[in-house]
């Protein structure tokens, strides 16, 4: 059990580090479309690591199954949400960096 505790602690701390990295990226990246990439770091790998770390803390019963379900659900919905966000930004007329460069050259 001791070994599992250490493994889960390491997973949790690494997951939190990735989460913090993503939040930093939200402030450091230049435009909206690149910031979505930074946010997706926190949404994919940080959730995987933190939820896996919590799974190792359970007695492998119903709670583990619930954690697996939360993980699966986040894996399906968070890309959907960022896709919808990027799509609506494009329809709203926001240009990404390569597109706005091209526009400047043309005008």
């Amino acid at each position: 059990m001791f070994f599992l505790d250490i493994l889960s602690g390491v997973l949790l701390l690494v997951g939190v580090f990735f989460g913090f990295t993503g939040a930093l990226g939200l402030f450091r990246f230049p435009d909206f479309f690149t910031r979505v990439h930074a946010a997706s770091v926190t949404e994919s790998i940080a959730s995987i690591l933190i939820l896996t770390g919590l799974m190792l803390q359970t007695q492998f019963d119903l709670n583990t199954a619930k954690l697996i379900f939360i993980l699966l659900f986040l894996m399906i919905t968070s890309p959907t949400a960022s896709h919808a966000l990027a799509k609506s930004a494009r329809h709203g007329g926001l240009l990404s960096i390569p597109e706005s460069k091209k526009k400047k050259e043309n005008s």
Binding site: G19, L26, F32, A39, I50, L67, I70, L85, S88, G92
Partner: peptide, 23 residues
């Protein structure tokens, strides 16, 4: 600057809240 940046922040806040409640 933009509405979409704000929504991105709120979205990330929501995902982190799920993890926070579990922890």
């Amino acid at each position: 600057d933009t509405v979409y940046d704000r929504i991105l922040g709120v979205n990330m806040f929501g995902t982190k809240t799920v993890l926070f409640i579990a922890a």
